[in-house]
Design a protein around this nucleic acid. Structure first.
Lengths: 252, 252
DNA sequence: ATGTCTTTGTGAACGCGTGCACAAAGATGG
DNA sequence: CCATCTTTGTGCACGCGTTCACAAAGACAT
C-alpha cells in the first residue's frame, strides 16, 4: 500500500509491534461498522474475516493491547472500539495542516475521511499568492509565509505535504522547524527528517509500478521474450546474466 | 504503505522478493534523476543515500536482478534504468481506467505521475449520469454502463477504484469480471477478489491513524516512567459495564 | 606485472512477523 | 456440580527480510 514505509524501526513502542499498529485502523473500521448495526459481540473469526486477516493474527494483535475478549463468547464490540480508539490516540483531536492545494491537496481537503475520525483540517496552505484567500472545502487558503504562525497558533503536530516534488523537502524542513513531528507525504520524493519525526509516504506511481510488475509476471509467464530492443544505450557485460548476453566494459 | 498491504503472499515471483519489488520504483526514480543530470555511474552507497535505504540492502536487491555493477566503479546509470524498467514492465504501455470521478478521482486523472511512466489513462468512468460527457483532465467521463466494453476495447488490465466505500466491492467485481487483474483501491474498504487478482490499497485515514499512534506515544513519553511496571489492573469488568466510559468515537 | 585501493556481491546471523495447534477459560445445559 | 462446547490467548516453529562483514573482482598507478 501503499504506503509508507519510511518510518523508523522504532519498535520500542512499549510492546506493540509496528505491524500490529498498522492493522488496528483496519479492525477499528470493521468494528465501527458492526457497532452501527448494533452487533453486541463478535468472535475473532468473524472480525478477522471482515478485516481480511487471519484470525490467529487478530487475536495476537489484541493480546498486545490486553485481554479484552471473553472465551466462549468473543469480543465486546463497543468496548473494543473504545480501546482501539484510545490506543491509536483518536479520543483526542488532531489538528492537521495540508500544504500544497493543487488538485490532490484540494481533493484531500474535501475528503471526508480526514475529519471523520479525530482529525481536523486546521488550515490549507499554498505558496501561490493567487490562491490566498480562495475558499477550498469551505476554508480560505493561506499563504506559505504564515506557515510557522499557523502551526504554532493551532498546535499542529501533523502535516500533510501535497506539493510538487521539488518543493517537498523545503516545506518539510519548515514544518519540522515549526514543531510538526509527523508528516504524511504525497510528493514523490524521499524526505529526510531529524530523529523523532515520523514520515509516512503515499506514492501513487510506486503502487502502480508494483502492480505492473505482477501484471507482467502474470501475462508473460510463457512469453518470456525480452521485448523489442529499445536500444539500450549502454550494453554492458554481465557475465552471470541468465540470458547470456555478454557485453564488454561499459563505455563512458 | 500505502502501502499497500492487502496483497497476496504470491511470492512465487521467480526469486524476486516482494520487498525488493516494492523498492525498485524508488531506485528507478533516483536513477532517473541522475540520468537527467547526465551522471554516468553511481556507487551503491550514493544511490542508497538518494533512495533512503541501506546500501547493503540495495546491493542485495540488485543481485536478484543479476550482476549489473562493476566492482571498484559502481553501476552504470543508463543501463540500470533500463534493466529496472524492464523488470517492472514499464517498457510497455499500461492502459488504466479510473472508476469514480469525484474529488479524488479527478485529482488522480490530473495527476502527472500516472502518465509519466508507461501508464496511460484510457478512460474515466463514473456512475453519475450527470457526469457523463463532462471533460475531466481533457477526457470525457463515461458512464458505468459501458464499463465492460471500455475494459475490453482498450485491453485494460489495471483498474483504479476511487468510488465511495459502498460502491467499491461492486465496481471491483465488475472490473474483475471484465478482465482486470490488478486493482489499486482508494476506497476505505477491504476488497475481496478471486485468486490471481492483485489488490493494493491506499488508505489516507489509516495512514493518519498510524501517525496519530506514534504522535500520542511521543507526547506521552514524559509520563512514561510509571508505565514501566506491568499493567496489573486488567479492567475485566469493563464489559458493557457501568457506562462510565462511553466510547467517544465517531462513525464514517 | 605487481600492489593498492575501491566497490561489488553474498554468506551468515539475527530479529520480526505469521500461522498452527492446543491448553486454559468461560458459557451453557443437564 | 459436572460434562460438554465454544472461543480466546499463546508457545512454538518457520520463513522472510535486514544487516554486518568480508572475500573477490576490477580499476588504477607504478
Amino acid at each position: 500500500m501503499a504506503t509508507g514505509r519510511t518510518h523508523r524501526p522504532a519498535t520500542r513502542s512499549r510492546g506493540i509491534p509496528e505491524a500490529t499498529v498498522a492493522r488496528l485502523p483496519l479492525y477499528l473500521r470493521a468494528l465501527t461498522a458492526l457497532s452501527e448495526r448494533s452487533v453486541p459481540t463478535v468472535s475473532s473469526e468473524e472480525l478477522a474475516a471482515a478485516a481480511g486477516v487471519n484470525s490467529a493474527k487478530l487475536r495476537k494483535d489484541f493480546s498486545y493491547l490486553g485481554s479484552y475478549g471473553t472465551r466462549g463468547v468473543g469480543y465486546d464490540v463497543e468496548y473494543l472500539v473504545y480501546q482501539i480508539s484510545r490506543e491509536l490516540g483518536l479520543t483526542q483531536d488532531w489538528p492537521v495542516v495540508i500544504v500544497g492545494i493543487g488538485n490532490l491537496g484540494a481533493a484531500l481537503a474535501n475528503y471526508g475521511g480526514f475529519a471523520s475520525r479525530g482529525f481536523r483540517v486546521a488550515a490549507l496552505i499554498d505558496a501561490d499568492p493567487a490562491m490566498a484567500g480562495k475558499p477550498v472545502a469551505g476554508m480560505p487558503v493561506q499563504h506559505t509565509d504564515d506557515l510557522e504562525r499557523i502551526i504554532s497558533d493551532n498546535g499542529v503536530s501533523i502535516g500533510v505535504i501535497a506539493t510538487p516534488a521539488g518543493a517537498a523537502q523545503q516545506v518539510c524542513d519548515r514544518l519540522v522547524a515549526a514543531g510538526v513531528t509527523s508528516i504524511l507525504n504525497f510528493a514523490p520524493t524521499v524526505l529526510s527528517v531529524p530523529d523523532g519525526v515520523d514520515v509516512r509516504k503515499v506514492d501513487l506511481s510506486i503502487e502502480l509500478q508494483i502492480l505492473a510488475f505482477h501484471e507482467q509476471r502474470k501475462a508473460g509467464e510463457d512469453a518470456a521474450s525480452d521485448d523489442g530492443a529499445p536500444a539500450p544505450a549502454v550494453a554492458k557485460d554481465h557475465r552471470k546474466g541468465p540470458d547470456g548476453d555478454v557485453p564488454a566494459v561499459m563505455p563512458a
